[in-house]
Amino acid sequence: MTAYLTALRAIVLREALRFVHQRERFVAALVRPLVWLLVFAAGFRAALGLSILPPYQTYITYETYIVPGLCGMILLFNGMQSSLSLVYDRETGSMRLLLTAPLPRGWLLFCKLLGSTMISILQVYAFLLIAALFDITMEPLGYLAALPALLISGLMLGTLGLALSSFIKQLENFAGVMNFVIFPMFFLSSALYPLWKMAESSALLRDICAANPFTHAVELIRFALYTQFNGWALLWTLLATVLFMALALWGYDPARGLINRKG
């Protein structure tokens, strides 16, 4: 067991060191949700009226509504960013080094996932801090309660990135991931608008949003930020994590030889 934990610590530490060396990436990752929060939300505040819906107990501003969705956005983009770096690692060879360690491949991939998720969570808290400076605050205990929700959501989106990375042949194909995964996942969710609003436009779109695991990750975070528990969202997020992890393990199965697949 010690060997497992030693490897876990080293892989997480390596992710942290990488993060320290790429501070620009940290800032860049914060700019995107902050633009949505401080520009987009401010502009749409008047256009989108929000009624009281759980977990909120009173009318809220649009800026307040989209904060959990933007936390999810950070996790989503970082999950995809780490999938990009995995494809890069695969091409440069450092993924080979990781996968030839004498430990189960599933454990090694999980360690890598956990490391990148922890960096994402740091970014989410930095975002929440800046939002609080602009007077967009959650419940004080909610910041703590959100931690496990962020971890589970981050792992779910990380496993999605991991699964995708095993199927992306080359770095050049990454733009397709942006178009076909990130944007639909983000816009077809409750991140920017509640599902009942979407239902007013189209029942089908609403159903798609309801099936989207990203919606449930956002709702899990939203409820946690108000110290409430959303069991359905948790279940859905966990199910998606298991499914994506199984896909990733299949994708990285040495019998399939994807690690060395030529594009």
Partner: peptide
Amino acid sequence: VVFQSQTLDLDLTIRQNLSYFAALHGL
């Protein structure tokens, strides 16, 4: 194993690179 393509993390020191690898082998 020494792979054909370079597998060092260029932003880390030699010792950090080796410590990372040692940990992957439980050391």
